[in-house]
Write a protein that binds this DNA or RNA. Structure first.
Lengths: 152, 152
DNA sequence: TATTGTTATACTCTATAACTATA
DNA sequence: TATAGTTATAGAGTATAACAATA
């Protein structure tokens, strides 16, 4: 089904399509996370905190997530109040606070990860497995090109 | 450069990549539109208004843009106050208001479209022309799959 | 002097509900 | 009764600036 030429200028625009697609994914993921008491951003912080035993500094969290450090403070506050992560002092740099997942946090993550995966899969049903792989490749180059990820 | 396994769970996630890439595009486009007194959302409304002679109803604007009609009201208000569009009564349905670009609005669009294109192109330099075409195809199926576009 | 985390603030975007006038 | 537009409000996301503690 072809959209009329009047709307083609928009519907052909990569920025517009990215924004729409991203919104769809965020909404679906937030809906899946609702019953776990999380949203996409806090979930991503929890994921990273669960990714290490020693914890990850807030500065590194900000770099990986592409967020300002001040936003990370609020997200970690939220997770800490829920008892899902805790801040530990670094023994090499007393400025640094290492965010580490609690056992409760790891449980919540384990419970949520499948629901999020289902939500994402539901959004991707239009694409074949090959196309999904290709999309991930293309997007990673767009997403991480401007502000590349530091090795954490 | 390989990100560590600790961050792979995130950096492999399509939703995360979409969100990052979308943010990059929105920021770049907003920066390009700043000198024209527009932002991405008002610009997209202006684009659609410029796409027809007769004008486009606010309901159709909302459907094409994937926005709530109440948000469209504010965007059209903003453009109308700047003299870039005007609301005309429909002669077939007195509830409907047709949003049509003024000559000034068409001038602003003409002046801005190149700057936006440059900003988008700058974001896409990582990809070959073939990859850009492919990406557009994949994204359009993701973006418009859930809430498909009505023919306007 | 530079960096980590923090507080504060303002603006944009998103999501809903309720209302009016027309159909 | 349903639809197009409008008003209002609240929450979430984004962007900056300034500060204290530490390096």
């Amino acid at each position: 089904m072809e959209p009329s030429t009047a709307t083609a200028a928009l519907t052909d625009d990569v920025g517009f399509l990215l924004s729409r697609a991203s919104g769809n994914f965020v909404r679906a993921s937030n809906a899946a996370l609702l019953s776990h008491g999380l949203r996409v951003r806090s979930y991503s912080v929890l994921l990273l905190a669960c990714g290490t035993e020693e914890g990850i500094s807030q500065r590194d969290l900000a770099a990986v997530l592409g967020l300002d450090p001040s936003q990370v403070v609020l997200l970690v506050d939220e997770l800490a109040e829920s008892g899902l992560v805790e801040r530990r002092p670094s023994d090499t740099d007393r400025r640094t606070k290492l965010v580490v997942a609690t056992p409760a946090g790891r449980q919540v993550r384990a419970a949520a990860v499948g629901d999020v995966a289902s939500a994402v899969t539901g959004q991707l049903t239009e694409l074949t497995a090959t196309e999904q792989f290709l999309l991930r490749n293309l997007l990673s180059r767009l997403a991480l090109g401007a502000a590349s990820l530091p090795p954490v």
